[in-house]
Nucleic acid binder design. Structure first.
Lengths: 218, 218
DNA sequence: GCATGTACCTTCCGAATGGAATGTTTTCCG
DNA sequence: CGGAAAACATTCCATTCGGAAGGTACATGC
């Protein structure tokens, strides 16, 4: 091998490159473990194995397991934000409401959200983990809401949109839980459809009476 | 001590009594551990310690930890059913809807539900546990729905009531999760109120247009 | 090129966990 | 009573986990 060999596939080994590579390998493996094995089944050994990283390398980057988890939280929530923030296509109106609800549902029922749930449940009885997660989760909620606020247009008062958003998020999380524990998929689909109708009505007819089933205001 | 001593506070020691006592002590301690320490923090040692039961006695009743957990699931869900099945007082109408939603909320945001959540999340990655939980959870869901169906009266079609019930349950579970992870209590109260209004409208005006905010049909 | 620090690897260790083995007490029943 | 069985207790063991210690390979700056 010539000293000046610039090639090829296997060479991008500046220190920073090296560092970044194993770091994200560890974080991705952590998320993968959370999804596959749950929090209690996630061990640093297994994370290292999946990441193809030695035990020592892991300790070099994240001294303690808690530190690794804290970093994984940020990594995870960043990816989750990207997933849940796909932009809306439909023009303003009921169709857009349907689309937005679908988007939230897909986001909060995916693998990343599963990993986040594992972390949240674990954080309930782990102060350090909870302190790591709280601000990151708050930021995720706010920034996601912001996106939907922008997409909604001006004809919907802030307060109402916010209420609708949080109702949808919480319902969606409940449904995601239902999916996790083996609930009936058909029932979930029905509930989601029903909620879309309700939300579209509430969204469209601000503060005034309006039809509840089917499309609003024919 | 006389052989025929029949007394007093400390004597009810038929075998069955003895058995039942330590059994339920173990199961209660298991639930308590789940609430306090989470699933991953729940060890048989700690369960025995809290139950005031020796390691050997526990193994006599539940050979393996999985067996203990399976029994705890039934124990827990039975208590949960009692909690969530308090009977409704209000006369049929919007007030009763509010009351029913409150009842579900209280049930699904209490300690017992927290323990159940720990178990469900653990069961996601534990086939044996999931097999134990699924039928018990289904039974809980059905029997609770039955109670609310009876309470609703005849003026609401089954399908609509069922939809409303499951929407409420899932929303409530999402809100319970939000509470668990340190969400804003005021926001939760607002969302719950809003949902009560929506549900009352849907319940009251079956299939016909109706008011969305405030009390329906003045 | 060579010293230096960063990234990485191997190996060991104490603590804790679930389960097994074995011994003791209490109730039951003839 | 007295033996049998059930309930309960003590102790030990293999495994596994997270963390520490100590050494090696690699990139960078002079």
């Amino acid at each position: 091998m010539s000293p000046e060999a610039p090639p090829a596939a296997r060479q991008a080994r500046t220190q920073q490159e090296r560092r970044e590579r194993t770091r994200s390998a560890l974080l991705d493996a952590t998320v993968e473990c959370l999804v596959d094995l749950g929090y209690s089944g996630t061990t640093v050994h297994e994370i290292c194995r999946r990441a193809g990283v030695s035990r020592g390398a892991q300790q070099h980057h994240f001294t303690t397991k808690a530190e690794l988890m804290a970093a994984a939280v940020e990594h995870l929530f960043q990816r989750l934000r990207d997933e849940v923030s796909g932009s809306l296509q439909a023009p303003p109106g009921p169709e857009r409401v349907h689309e937005a609800i679908d988007l939230l549902w897909r986001g909060f029922s995916g693998e990343l959200s599963t990993a986040a749930l594992e972390l949240w449940v674990a954080a309930r009885t782990d102060d350090e983990l909870r302190r790591s997660m709280l601000p990151v989760d708050r930021a995720l909620g706010r920034s996601t809401l912001e996106i939907y606020r922008d997409a909604a247009g001006v004809d919907v008062p802030d307060e109402k949109l916010e209420t609708l958003y949080w109702l949808t998020v919480n319902l969606t999380r409940g449904l995601a839980l239902d999916a996790m524990i083996g609930g009936d998929p058909a029932r979930r689909a029905r509930l989601l459809d029903e909620w879309k109708a309700i939300a579209a009505a509430a969204y469209h007819d601000v503060g005034r009476p309006g039809p509840r089933s089917g499309r609003p205001t024919p």
